[in-house]
Amino acid sequence: MQDILRRMLGQGEALEPPTIEAQVVPTPTLWLLGKTGSGKSSLIRLLTGEAEIGPGFAPCTRTAMAYDFPRERPLLRFLDTRGLGEVGYDPAEDLAAAEEGSHAIVALARLDDPVQGAVTDVVAAVRDRRPRAPILLVHTGADLAPEPAARERARARAQAAFEEAAGGRLAHVVVALPPGAPEAIGIEELHAALAAILPETSLLMMRERAESEEARRFAEHRPLVLWYAGAAAAADTTPIVGAVSVPALQGAMLNALAQRYRVPWTRARIGAFAGALGSGVLLRYAAGYAARQGAKLVPGIGQTLGAAAAATVSFAATYALGRAACFWLDREARGEPANEEVLRRLYAEAFKRARHAPR
């Protein structure tokens, strides 16, 4: 098992790492609409898990503020429209900013505040200018109206007003965001609703929050890993050539990643990584790899279906190996032991996603 990795790394040393420019991906942006005190900061705190929200806001227009999470390399942006309900507020500038950058709108209305005209006016204007803009209505303050019948009457009244402004049905949730409360009410429903209108939000906030720091570092290196995975797939479409070039490409990828994490591969590290990844992963891949290379030598079907199957598996295995290596190298760089269960899960998930990904 360690010999497999050593051979890959040795072959890959001769290959120069490519210059891969990180892809520019728009930051998913949620535009929060609501009167002062409607719970916008509490909602951000709930979704991000950050304790201090106020100091993180930065002006983006004269009447709106932006909150980036995380602040250094944003995965998600909240646009908070300030001043709704104040005399003389003109939402035109905010509407223009939202048209340019936001992906979905979250309108917040407190159940104990029946006066929502300032917010519904903006919702109506948004729908006039952006008919397909996803809008989620969040009824806050469920804890302020504990009596179920009264709470439902207040929700129905606000829901009707917002839907009239929007010109149609609106997805909605009812939540309670009490300051300092150990658990909010309606958080699961909120996550599900956000997932429906903005899938990126669900993925970023629900699946990667626990590993956000490591996940962000991997995102920086993902283009490099994808380049090697694509190169491995291309090399593996021809007989014989793939048997030589794919292990070399994988070794080159591991060497390039080690340089980026500033963690050189040593005999001890190779053994530790191989042990953490597990003998089953590498041995299964090595055995299957030999079979796929042999299948490509069969005239006719082997050179078409066999080559396609080999390319698919090489793409997935290379990507998964890169994902696992990034996690392991990140822990090495910080002097922390890598959780073997997490490492193997990341490999398996990456392999599954990459194997079924269109290319």
Rank of each mutant, 00 (worst) to 15 (best):
A233H: 03
A338G: 06
A66V: 12
Y228M: 08
A258N: 09
V175C: 09
A97H: 15
W227H: 13
A158G: 11
A295Q: 10
R269I: 01
A348M: 06
K40I: 04
A229T: 10
A324R: 00
P223R: 01
Q23C: 10
A307H: 01
G294T: 07
A51M: 11
T304S: 12
A124I: 07
R353T: 11
L9Q: 00
H191L: 07
G167P: 05
L190A: 00
V122H: 02
E147L: 05
P358W: 11
P26A: 11
A92P: 09
G167A: 04
W227C: 02
F351H: 15
T238G: 10
I135E: 00
F57G: 13
I44G: 06
R130E: 07
K296M: 11
T266P: 04
V122L: 12
Y285K: 11
L15I: 08
P70S: 06
E341P: 05
A98M: 15
A14R: 14
Q11F: 13
R6G: 00
E349K: 10
G85C: 05
P358H: 10
P239Y: 02
A125C: 02
E189M: 00
G168A: 10
G180R: 10
E13V: 12
R260H: 13
D94E: 14
E200D: 15
L95D: 14
T48R: 04
V313C: 05
Y67C: 11
G167T: 08
E72C: 06
L137T: 00
R260Y: 07
P91G: 06
R355D: 06
L321W: 08
M8F: 13
R110A: 14
T318F: 03
L108R: 01
L144M: 07
G88M: 03
V119T: 13
Q250G: 01
A215Q: 14
A219H: 12
R82P: 02
M253R: 00
R71A: 15
L297Q: 05
A154G: 00
Q116S: 12
L30E: 13
D330R: 11
G117C: 02
L204I: 12
R62E: 15
H103T: 02
L9Y: 05
P182S: 00
M253Y: 01
R77S: 07
A311N: 02
T61P: 09
M206P: 02
K352H: 12
E93P: 12
A258D: 05
S38C: 14
A150S: 10
H221A: 11
L224F: 01
E72G: 09
S279F: 04
A165E: 00
